[in-house]
Amino acid sequence: MSPYYRPVRFDWWRKRRAYTLFVVRELTSVFIAGYAIVLLLLLRRLAEGREAYEAYLQWLATPGMMAFHIVALAAAVFHSLTWFSLAPRAMAVRIGERRLQPRTILWANYAAWAVVSAIAAWMVLRA
């Protein structure tokens, strides 16, 4: 009279929408990694000289690479948004007697993101 153990399903991530979204969030890292390779290639082409660099720019303008960039951007935004929406869970902030509302924490994160992005943009674009 032993209990019945249901088999583990290896397509578990298809069982529930939330699981699928979770796996998608994890998979966004593949595109981020791909983008890093594109950047590393840029360094190499720069080292090779002007011709190589221009060929690289032309390569970037191909429809395939345009599509890759759009997808990578979407993946990064998706990851960022889902990550920020989880942030209030990890951070419970108390100021004096009051506990900050999850929404406040969420917007504080977005605000910090915007500030950091602005600083980065300023550093890159000022020249």
Partner: peptide
């Protein structure tokens, strides 16, 4: 925990175990 977050979604008492684990 890989932060799927479904534990907190199904919790009938709004305990938010995912939040507890993150903290």
């Amino acid at each position: 925990c890989t932060l799927v977050g479904e534990c907190s979604t199904v919790c009938p008492k709004d305990v938010d175990p995912a939040g507890a684990i993150q903290r």
